[in-house]
Design a protein around this nucleic acid. Structure first.
Lengths: 160, 160
DNA sequence: TATTGTTATACTCTATAACTATA
DNA sequence: TATAGTTATAGAGTATAACAATA
């Protein structure tokens, strides 16, 4: 599996079918982007039959962990606008996994909570996500996975 | 549209303003997504005056490293469809940074290359990207940055 | 005045399918 | 037949601005 290191190419000449990446591999932003793109696509394939996206799954887990949370709280936690959260909750509600309830203390807001169907199906979602994660980390040891999560968590911690 | 039924109910207790993330921090995909989102937004702000995106910058660097490469080669390397690459090259060409040249050997394809203006401005782009990268890695040591890039490169290496 | 949810709208990014010109 | 570039189009995801209800 070991490929010879690519040497500097002369002007105009580059291996057919294989391009040099130039400085890109040295950029954290580039590695982040490519890893995220591959991961996103695998996630979509994992849930192709249900149309579940990483954002929808994240919202479901958040609702489970914070029953009765407001839409705008969920939005802020996921780094989304509250108008974006409307359609996300719409979809989850249309699937019958969550419901909107009028909050008792502040009647402007909706308290979002899982339905019985949502609580029933969430373990299956988590099981599939675990399989997806296993593919993601197939080439990493358990210690490396933990290290990677830790390092990622320290990128722009002030922007979250 | 159909408005959801809303019934008043008592909210369950969770810390005001701060939601629990549940299992999300344990998911590599989630950390990846949040880090990439923050990074993408900082990149856009960095080039707000020029409208340069990570993809456009990546394409420029690729053209620099592989003068005369075909559009479809660039597309494959960046993980994009060749129809998507059309508009990317369109934009770079409209800015005057690259040009399409009829390939001599295969007249179906375009050989993409930097213009003089492109070669002139690329160092400035790289300087700004370096500043962006510095913000990104503000909380990481040099060794940790290298380790992070290495670990990211081992996520789905077979899908790239 | 400020906030919450909502709607209307628009913009970006991306892919699919069909077309053309070559190979 | 197959490939490279292009075009038209559609879908997903997102944000901004304005509005009503409520605080």
């Amino acid at each position: 599996m070991a490929k010879p290191t690519q040497t500097a190419v002369a002007e105009e000449a580059h291996a057919p079918g294989t391009l040099s990446l130039g400085m890109l591999p040295d950029l954290l932003g580039f590695q982040l982007r490519m890893a995220q793109l591959a991961t996103f696509r695998d996630f979509l394939e994992t849930f192709a039959d249900l149309g579940l996206t990483p954002t929808l799954f994240g919202a479901l887990v958040l609702v489970e962990a914070n029953p009765g949370a407001k839409q705008s709280e969920l939005a802020r936690t996921l780094g989304l606008d509250r108008s974006t959260m409307v359609s996300i909750i719409d979809r989850l509600e249309r699937e019958g996994w969550v419901r909107r309830r009028r909050a008792a203390t502040d009647r402007r807001s909706n308290a979002i909570e899982l339905t019985a169907a949502g609580r029933r199906i969430l373990p299956e979602f988590k099981r599939r996500v675990a399989e997806h994660e296993a593919r993601l980390t197939a080439h990493l040891g358990a210690d490396e996975q933990a290290r990677l999560r830790d390092l990622l968590g320290r990128i722009f911690p002030d922007r979250r």
